[in-house]
């Protein structure tokens, strides 16, 4: 099942940062890493990943460099130190949030009130 783009809203930045954690990637490779890493669940329109990468670059969380591949200009991105710190912080926050939600959802049915 593919996730709606709307469902990713608010999480896209940290997912893009996580996709770049193993090492530098160009836009299409980032999108593929998201798709493969989520078992096909996060299959975004490729073209919409690029403006998000540009926004992260403008924020100083990733940096891009140009190269040439098969006669085409290619921009490859990697995490900056600020991006690594942001990813680490967001990861901790997410684990705490997910643990709290899991605890609530796995509880026995709550007693009725009133």
């Amino acid at each position: 099942m593919k996730a709606e783009a709307q469902a990713l809203k608010g999480h896209l930045d940290v997912l893009l940062l996580a996709a770049l954690e193993p090492g530098p990637r160009h836009g299409y490779a980032v999108k593929e890493a998201l798709r493969e890493g989520s078992g096909g669940r996060f299959d975004l329109p490729t073209g919409t990943v690029y403006p998000a990468l540009h926004r992260l670059e403008a924020a100083g969380l990733i940096s891009g460099t140009w190269s040439h591949t098969d006669g085409r200009r290619r921009r490859t991105y990697e995490l900056t130190e600020a991006g690594q710190r942001k990813l680490a912080g967001d990861r901790v926050n997410w684990h705490e949030f997910a643990a709290a939600v899991t605890t609530l959802l796995d509880r026995q049915p709550w007693p009725a009130t009133g």
């Binding site: 490729t46 690029y50 540009h54 200009r73 921009r75």
Partner: peptide, 14 residues
């Protein structure tokens, strides 16, 4: 132009 070059690379790769 830079964004177009990058998109052209991604579209070609796809």
């Amino acid at each position: 132009a830079d964004a177009v070059d990058e998109l052209a690379d991604g579209l070609t790769e796809t």
